[in-house]
Design a protein around this nucleic acid. Structure first.
Lengths: 355, 355
DNA sequence: TTGAAAGCGTTACCAA
DNA sequence: TTGGTAACGCTTTCAA
């Protein structure tokens, strides 16, 4: 191989102003007159090594700024301590918060997050091949859309995978999701309590599980309550502008008391459009509710009633699943539903508690 | 080592239902009756190997689903193809978009993004030690705050590092930043054109370079134009609520024609507070401008005049720096300033063009 | 162009 | 508890 050099000479013979090559365990061992195995043991928590030897090694290591090379460790252990996080849109404000919490929780237990930002346009398999080559220990999929179950199985290739807020039946993929049906029913109940009788639903991406569950949960419950479904806008995207457009269509019908939007960003667009283009007052003329409880929903301007996703719980459960026996995840894929919480705010005429 | 097994036996002797262990280059070579080196060469773009041999290997590899193990390659090449991305707050909506574009551009040239989400609370060195152990090829720092130059130098340890929107003097760190001074001056000029004479500035985090540059650029320019600085709110955070609070303080003074907020999220909070709490009309009573041009700024409800950061350019330049000779980055740290664009919208009384 | 073999820096097995 | 040493799966040098 190229870089050999005499033991005491660290620098490249060439003039590369590259930072010094980091010291290795073998060098450290030689300097201390111990075996290289000892060095490895000193850095391995449960290893059988005398306390004083370990201390001596760690102390000296700190002095010469030695740190075990994680790459070599990965190769040797066949474990990377890297979790692949597959994301497809970070524009929906719900996701950045989730990703942030997730990566921090993982970091806290020594796991790093490798981000895979997939786009619908290009070749998915190509984008995901890195997921396999990098030998990530597990995969967390946050993208509500795009990936088919089979593509995902291919990409994870026998690695534990956990989907967040997306349920795929008939596969060996685990899921952690908010109880969307419960949430949607809670919104329906709340609308009913607030006196609405003619209600509308605005879908997000119609084929996503989040949307389907929220939609059917809502529609079912309003029927049970004897309310009328005055409108149902189908199959747009989860975006502010889609929310505006849907709201205007509904307002034009003049036969709706309350609108449930599939998520907050839609609802926020809806509120703006209702107030500024349709000339409706929210909540006086029409009630509006969303889903997620993104930070914006709490802003005084929107004051949006919504169903809060249990983000912290979701993160906790996902991290626990990964931290625990990961091979158990492979043996039996589990789907976990977590309860959220109805947050009543002014957009449905509720008097918000002090928050 | 433990997992040995006879050549044709792939599974663990124990009952682990773990997915089959992936095939290695050596096995592939043996199956094809070629050398393992040949397999390696087949997957190495410029390698000297006969075209037909390569083709035969690649074809067979595809059949048996072989992919080179990236970890082994890292160890052997001392190159990981991983870029560390250091982030500290993903709540400011400007960042998710940037991170998304960045990671996609990197992916396109075969580089993966390892996310380091640092929190101010806990021990920074501990959080960043992984950055060193994982041998990332380069580091991109998106956090406007938190890290001192020296901590950063320690963490990157001789690796190329690029700061986005943060300029650190006197170090060997490269920077790519928006021309904040130019932007702030453009806002001042625009205010002047719109007839404002008494203007206020609302700072973000006062010690950040983005804030300092925007502030001094603005203050200097309004002086040149003979305008009055009617108020200057110092040292809050970059948040919606900080914007609200600052706006109310300024409105209470009743002596301000226009407010320049250090970024859009502040400005958006400001607009809401002015309209809904202070009873001011924007832009009729007071003009408001921000900085960044986040998606929300374009929403009809806000219609915020702002200075658009050249995000695509920033990403392009950063990726080029990394793609190019990275050791050059180490020899001479460069600071690159990119021009943005004034986006005139209704919050300063401008009639927006069709966008 | 090809193959053999020496690393890369760890971990884990085996004796001592 | 320790040290020696064989993997881990590649890349790259060196000869052929």
């Amino acid at each position: 191989m190229r870089k050999q050099g005499s033991p005491s000479l660290q620098r490249e013979p060439s003039g590369e102003a590259f930072g010094r090559k980091p010291i290795t365990a073998r060098e450290l061992a030689r300097m201390l007159g111990v075996s290289q195995s000892a060095v490895s043991r000193a850095f391995t928590p449960g290893a059988s090594i005398a306390a004083d030897l370990r201390e001596r090694i760690l102390k000296y290591a700190a002095e010469v700024d030695y740190q075990p090379n994680a790459i070599a460790s990965m190769l040797s252990k066949s474990r990377t301590n890297i979790i692949g996080i597959v994301v497809s849109d970070m524009q929906n404000p719900f996701y950045p918060g989730l990703i942030e919490k997730l990566s921090r929780s993982l970091q806290r237990i020594g796991l790093q997050s490798l981000l895979f930002n997939i786009t619908k346009g290009s070749n998915l398999e190509e984008q995901l091949s890195a997921l396999r080559r990098y030998n990530v220990d597990a995969v967390i999929v946050i993208s509500a859309t795009i990936l088919s179950g089979s593509t995902l199985s291919w990409a994870t290739e026998g690695r534990p995978a956990i989907l967040i807020n997306r349920v795929i039946e008939d596969t060996n993929l685990s899921c952690v999701a908010c109880n969307n049906v419960e949430g949607a029913r809670a919104i329906a109940d709340h609308f009913h309590r607030q006196g609405a009788r003619r209600v509308a639903y605005v879908a997000g991406l119609s084929h996503t599980t989040t949307n389907r569950e929220r939609q059917s949960g809502f529609v079912t419950r309003i029927a049970e309550l004897g309310m009328t479904l005055s409108a149902q806008i189908e199959g747009r995207e989860y975006s502010y502008y889609a929310g505006r457009k849907a709201a205007l269509e509904i307002a034009a019908g003049k036969n709706t008391d309350a609108i449930f939007f599939a998520n907050d960003i839609l609802a926020i667009g809806g509120i703006d459009a209702l107030r500024e283009e349709a000339g409706c007052r929210v909540p006086d003329d029409i009630l509006v509710a969303g889903f997620d409880d993104i930070p914006m929903a709490g802003w005084p301007h929107y004051n949006l009633t919504t169903f809060r996703q249990p983000v912290d719980e979701i993160v906790r459960v996902v991290v626990e699943m990964i931290e625990g026996d990961t091979s158990a995840l492979l043996r039996a894929a589990t789907t976990i539903r977590l309860s959220g919480e109805l947050i009543e705010r002014r957009s449905t005429g509720a008097e918000p508690d002090a928050e």
